[in-house]
Computed example of a mutant assay.
Amino acid sequence: MLNYFLKRLLGLIPTLLIVAVLVFLFVHLLPGDPARLIAGREADAEVVALVRQQLGLDLPLPQQFWHYITHALQGDLGVSMVSKRPVSEEIAQRFLPTLGLTLSSMLWSVIFGMVIGVVSAVWRNRWPDRLGMTLAVSGISFPAFALGILLMQVFSVQLGWLPTVGADSWQHYILPSITLGAAVAAVMARFTRASFVEVIQEDYIRTARAKGVRESVVMVKHGLRNAMIPVVTMMGLQFGFLLGGSIVVEVVFNWPGLGRLLVDSVAMRDYPVIQAEVLLFSLEFILINLLVDMLYAAINPAIRYQ
């Protein structure tokens, strides 16, 4: 297990290097001149050239990349072109709101998704199954930005129950977490149902029932545990999606997180911030997948890694 873990950690290096190269090329292909945006529309060519020189954008691309990657390997992600603050401070300031939103969204979506999936599997082809799958399809089909606007209109504007923007209290998390977690809950429900339906048709489930084991024990102890392995995989992927893909929701609710920071950075062509955030999201996905692989062995002792 330890050797497998170390090999996967070493595999991070070439993956992140490839991501660094691709994102570096991507941000430099974006239309627009960051020096012009920072200098302002009224600035003349000399001022823009001076700003470009201060930012290091006048250097050849290979030299810019070498400067970027050598500093990144030393833990220096650069300085924001807009705020003039270290990129690490910008990300650290925005990370906790995004993490809190992600955890709250993941918590309720996993609980509701798994409950709906198990209920639909146990009473499949009956009204609880049809109702649950109708809710799941609706959750997947409804766009996040439209759901967020609808929730704000109903619960903030008309009823006045919940705040619309900001992250100052727990009430601020309710609407964004529902918006962000709706699609995840729908995916979890459908995936849990499919996995559970397959498991409850296995021979060991029929054997447990034949021995007179209570149905609730059969479903939870024998059925749910064995159905959890593919579900855990989906949970890991969905958590990575939530952590890195909350951009739309953060924009709708003006959430002070990484997604909002990324949108603002793209608009201002803030290259260091964009590169650091994409690298961070890539690292998160890799580490989450590694954690999911480790959880396999905890759920099913028969699984061993070499």
Score class of each variant (00 low, 15 high):
Leu283Glu: 04
Phe24Lys: 02
Arg36Thr: 11
Phe281Asp: 04
Met268Phe: 10
Val115Lys: 06
Val137Asp: 12
Pro60Lys: 08
Ile200Thr: 11
Leu162Gly: 03
Pro60His: 08
Glu284Phe: 14
Ala183Asn: 08
Ser177His: 01
Ala186His: 07
Leu61Ala: 12
Trp66Ala: 14
Leu12Met: 15
Val122Ile: 15
Val273Asn: 00
Ser120Arg: 05
Lys84Glu: 13
Phe145Thr: 01
Gln171Arg: 14
Gln171Pro: 03
Thr98Gln: 00
Phe95Asp: 01
Leu280Gln: 04
Leu180Val: 04
Leu180Ile: 05
Phe155Ile: 04
Phe191Lys: 00
Leu55Ser: 07
Val79His: 01
Leu16Met: 14
Pro62Arg: 09
His222Thr: 07
Val187Leu: 12
Val48Pro: 08
Arg8Asn: 09
Ala276Ile: 08
Ser138Lys: 00
Leu10Pro: 03
Pro62His: 13
Leu96Cys: 05
Ile140Cys: 07
Ser138Glu: 03
Phe65Met: 11
Ser282Leu: 07
Ala189Val: 09
Ser156Phe: 02
Lys7Glu: 08
Gly113Val: 05
Ser265Cys: 12
Arg209Ile: 10
Met188Leu: 15
Val232Ala: 14
Ala298His: 10
Gln201Ile: 06
Thr192Trp: 10
Val165Trp: 00
Ile274Pro: 01
Leu73His: 09
Ser138Leu: 15
Ser138Gly: 14
Val137Gly: 03
Ala189Leu: 09
Leu59Gln: 13
Leu162Ser: 09
Leu59Val: 12
Val51Arg: 02
Val154Gly: 09
Ala185Trp: 03
Leu96Ser: 12
Gly166Val: 05
Gly117Pro: 03
Phe155His: 06
Met235Asn: 00
Ala302Glu: 13
Gln64Asp: 10
Leu50Asn: 03
Pro256Asn: 08
Glu90Thr: 07
Val197Pro: 02
Ile200Phe: 03
Phe285Thr: 09
Ser246Gly: 15
Gly223Cys: 07
Arg209Glu: 12
Ala276Asp: 06
Gly78His: 11
Val115Asn: 07
Arg52Glu: 11
Ser169Leu: 10
Arg214Phe: 12
Val157Tyr: 14
Leu73Thr: 07
Ile288Trp: 05
Gly236Trp: 02
Val184Lys: 01
Val154Cys: 07
Leu101Pro: 00
Gly257Ala: 09
Met188Ile: 15
Glu198Asn: 14
Val21Gln: 07
Ile303Pro: 06
Arg8Met: 06
Gln74Glu: 13
Val248Gln: 01
Trp127Phe: 15
Ala20Ser: 15
Ile116Phe: 09
Val27Ser: 06
Ile286His: 04
Val154Leu: 15
Phe191Pro: 00
Gly100Gln: 14
Phe239Arg: 03
Ala182Thr: 15
Gly148Leu: 01
Ala144Gln: 14
Ser80Thr: 04
Met152Asp: 00
Phe191Ser: 05
Ala146Val: 15
Arg269Asp: 04
Val23Cys: 05
Leu261Val: 11
Gln201Trp: 07
Arg209Leu: 14
Arg225Cys: 11
Arg52Val: 04
Val263Lys: 00
Val278Trp: 01
